[in-house]
Nucleic acid binder design. Structure first.
Lengths: 325, 325
DNA sequence: TTGTAAGCGTTATCAG
DNA sequence: CTGATAACGCTTACAA
């Protein structure tokens, strides 16, 4: 397959001139430029990007570390990243980790191996200290609050968001609420738990472990909540549900079992997914699309200006009140 | 940053020996191997994969051409591809095209530019003839039936699947059905339309254009179907709905408006997504996950054996009858 | 079993 | 404006 050398030979110029034309550099005579372009066309020449990547030390691609590809939360975030990335001619390398640290390590290694120019972490179970070790190899951004770190982060204040939801419920007269979480040991769960306990204390309500429901990721997990309720001597009158899919499952199953929403059970979801609008689900919009887009912008700046320090950015959430509270 | 040459110097061996150790080649003495490994460890050496890609002519990554990242159908398919790809140390480069041919062209160009070893097309609007032109640069696989082509394909028989759904409805006594489509000019829509018209002829029913509803992609589009019904002098008693998300929207909105399912309206969805199980939606499982996994396997074989011809593979669909018919 | 040296296809440098 | 020529960091004949 034709390479730059052959183009040079056929066009009667040097390889440097060909390279200049290919990269739109100035200081090439119109005549030579035309000749090169014509030869490129004739030979149907295509650049070997791997050579470009090697010499420039850049790949124009970033890795996305995420546990599950097929999950509304991560899809929406990825969509936001993707739009901005494509607009800047950057490629997305998706890496599904299932929260396995060995898999997550492989993503980090891609940065070290120069396969990508940067990493955006949507969620992880690797300790932050490990992530920080890799910052020397290139910019890393985490879509969760990780405190002051060597890597950037963009996030919403989960504690405040959770608090906003609870306040909304309290205003409606609720005192007994439970909540669902995806993983018990995620940072956002920890923030929420803290906010939760604080509110209980203020209300002088006891902490009931069984009202915190772990492992709720998809619509079916939401439906199973109603099942769990059955074995409880006392049930919450309101649920904060992380993820509108899960909330939708709960809402549907409640309806099926004749439990009126919000009469007997109030529900607040998270993410403002399309399903929440349809079902009239009150939800906390954590701006996933904007977060993804902004995540790329921050990372991109760091790729271009490697000496600029890490960035922390908080996005404002929004409580969208509909008919489920 | 350390390179192979420096490792060689410090370990007191040649670069080829280092390379052999790095690639687990035989014919390296245990002693030298140990020395190399130790030096690698000491210097925290990391391979520059771009150099490897350049010299080997392979990148161990494939591109995924898809219109929308954040869509249950494509997410599920991508998940299937991703599992198999990762198991074989292949990376997924996601490219969201929004069905713009210029974007789709960029994906194809990635193959020509050696940025990826192959392409899996989930859906496209580019003519097949254009795709075929790019087959010379590497293997391409399309997750839709495109007939006998220079590229591979894996698919279910949409006409037969559609027919199976209609037969199920006919058995329940329906004669008036409509259906939804994502895009009017997709190949699967064409197959379905054909099957549809054939059935109408058999039943001696007239073709009603307004019963075919275009642009139905997400849950909200499903809900809007009920709206469209209102202006119709005559309504279908059953709907075939491409995509369980859309079907879920329709089902929900029907319930809200007091239209009983399946009494007044029978619904069959597609894809067997989790939501369909929860809602008791009859659906046609088109095996998206398996399709994705198998798609990668086929492509991978073609990458390893470039002379093996294109493969066509049909997957068996399954009608899963639940309570919406 | 090991080392030398020739690439892979670009871009960057520097002299003209 | 243009062209030699030196990198970039690795794999792989080929020779020893």
């Amino acid at each position: 397959m034709a390479n730059i050398k052959e183009i040079a030979r056929l066009a009667g110029v040097s390889v440097s001139t060909v390279s200049r034309v290919l990269n739109d550099h100035p200081y090439v005579s119109a005549e030579k430029r035309a000749r090169v372009l014509e030869t490129v066309e004739q030979l149907k020449y295509a650049r070997n990007m791997n050579a470009v990547h090697l010499i420039t030390g850049k790949t124009r691609s970033i890795a996305i570390m995420l546990p599950y590809i097929n999950h509304a939360y991560f899809s929406r975030l990825t969509e936001g990243i993707g739009g901005e990335a494509l607009a800047n001619h950057y490629r997305l390398v998706l890496y599904q980790t299932a929260y396995k640290t060995s898999m997550e390590r492989e993503v980090l290694e891609m940065l070290r191996n120069r396969e990508v120019d940067g990493i955006i972490i949507l969620s992880m179970s690797t300790p932050v200290a490990v992530i920080e070790e890799y910052c020397r190899y290139g910019p890393i951004l985490c879509c969760q609050d990780a405190g002051e770190r060597a890597f950037s982060s963009i996030y919403i204040d989960h504690a405040r968001a959770f608090r906003a939801g609870m306040d909304c419920l309290i205003n409606k007269g609720h005192r007994h609420f439970g909540f669902t979480v995806g993983r018990m040991d995620s940072p956002s769960t920890k923030s929420r738990l803290e906010a939760y306990k604080k509110v209980l204390k203020e209300l002088n309500e006891p902490f009931r472990e069984e009202w915190i429901m772990d492992g709720c990721l998809d619509i079916e997990d939401g439906a199973s909540i109603m099942q769990r309720f059955q074995n409880m001597p006392e049930r919450p009158t309101a649920m904060m549900v992380t993820g509108d899919q899960v909330a939708a499952g709960l809402l549907w199953e409640a309806g099926k079992r004749g439990v009126s929403v919000p009469g007997q059970l109030a529900i607040i979801g998270f993410d403002n997914q399309p399903v929440s609008k349809l079902l009239g689900l009150t939800t906390i919009d954590n701006r996933l699309f904007e977060m993804g887009a902004e995540a790329f912008r921050i990372l991109y700046r760091q790729i271009r200006e490697p000496d600029s320090g890490p960035v922390r950015k908080e996005l404002a959430f929004r409580l969208i009140e509909r008919s489920s509270v």
